[in-house]
Design a protein around this nucleic acid. Sequence first.
DNA 1: GCCAACGTTGGC
DNA 2: GCCAACGTTGGC
Length: 155
Amino acid sequence: MGKRYWLMKSEPDVYSIDDLQRDGKDCWEGIRNYQARNFMRDDMKVGDGVLFYHSNAKPPGVAGLARVCRLAYPDHFAWDKKSKYFDPKCDPEDPRWWMVDVEYVETFPHLVSLQQLKDDAQLEDMMVTRRGSRLSIQPVELAHWKRVSALGRKG
DNA sequence: GCCAACGTTGGC
DNA sequence: GCCAACGTTGGC
């Protein structure tokens, strides 16, 4: 399997692309949805491209690019009682939740808003534009990746 | 802050 | 295995 592309949602109030730029790289902890977990655990490879999406933002949209820089490993916050991602049903011997690390690549000079994504004919069937699409990690087609990047760089 | 959409839980 | 109740997501 060659390089793949993803969209990963983060609430900027919690962790924004500026935070990732400051940190250089960070673990993507707290994913508590099985479909999203499966994408990270089973499909993400080092070097895969990430559209960094700001959810619950004004406006919501793709803020820039990141890159997967570590293969999936157990999300240890799941058994950290002090973490807000603590999951009492989790057994460290049999990890239920996984995460990858991502590294900062670039911040778009123009945030590509959800409305822009919806209005763009080339992005018609992109998953994030579908109504009720709550999945916080989604696969992205190469053509969509290229189009979103172009919009973000050129406005 | 509202609420529709969706995922999970748990009784049966 | 059904499904009602509940919790969360996330746009608006």
